[in-house]
């Protein structure tokens, strides 16, 4: 093995650019996944079949097909009849949409975990439906689901390199471009280690949250 630190030094500026893009995709993708997932979760509990069934169908379909292919679809197919989006925007939408189908399940479990007595108490007090959700159910549900959501953020982090395939220059995209230009291997290795180095403290953090929030 002939590891070359000069190559590493050459790569580092582009590595940091990539980290920035990865973090952008991760933060925006997470926000999208969190909010869209909540919409799915509430819609799946709707009493109206016309709302419930399509939502269940769509989320099942998205969850059971590869994110990579969904990214291709968003990037190449959607512009044929819809808006053209930059690789990063496509990536954020793809990550957010894909993971929203998982966060929906997390919310669902959290909502199911709120004791039936809470719904009954809200009914007994004649609280309007929106008030029951926002003041009684969700505050209790969200607390329990935060660590689980955190787990999906880490999972999303590790799937984020896929957006390199549609041309977003996050960490892997930078490494791939750099390695192809220079015929070197150090960049891939650095990015691979970087993911492990980021993911490890992240999971420690989630574990700590789990201990504090889920009693």
């Amino acid at each position: 093995m002939n590891w070359n630190w000069d190559v590493v030094a050459d790569f580092m500026p582009r590595f940091w650019d990539g980290v920035l893009v990865t973090l952008q995709a991760l933060v925006l993708g997470s926000l999208l996944a969190f909010s869209l997932g909540l919409v799915w979760a509430i819609a799946q509990r709707s009493k109206v079949k016309l709302i419930r069934w399509p939502v269940v169908g769509i989320t099942e379909f998205i969850r059971n097909t590869p994110l990579l292919v969904q990214l291709f679809f968003l990037f190449y197919v959607v512009p044929e009849w819809g808006p053209s989006m930059s690789p990063l925007v496509t990536g954020v939408i793809g990550l957010g949409l894909h993971y929203s189908t998982y966060t929906a399940e997390v919310y669902r479990a959290g909502i199911d975990g709120v004791p039936v007595g809470q719904w009954e108490a809200a009914t007994a007090l004649s609280l309007p439906r929106t008030r029951t959700w926002t003041a009684v159910i969700l505050p209790q549900a969200i607390r329990r689901v935060i660590p689980a959501l955190g787990n999906y953020v880490v999972a999303m982090l590790k799937d984020s390199p896929m957006i390199a395939v549609i041309g977003a220059f996050e960490m892997l995209g930078e490494a791939r471009a750099f390695s192809n230009e220079t015929f070197t291997f150090e960049a891939y290795t650095i990015v691979g280690v970087a993911f492990i180095v980021i993911a490890y403290p992240a999971s420690l953090l989630i574990r700590a949250m789990e201990r504090r929030l889920v009693k």
Binding site: K158, M171, L172, S179, F183, Y188, T189, V191, G192, I196
Partner: peptide
């Protein structure tokens, strides 16, 4: 180590970096 690993990055590393290393 492996739960922190991104499968795609690892795969590309196996395909391109590993042979060079």
């Amino acid at each position: 180590v492996f739960r922190g690993t991104s499968a795609l990055v690892f795969m590309l590393w196996m395909a391109f970096a590993f042979p060079l290393m």
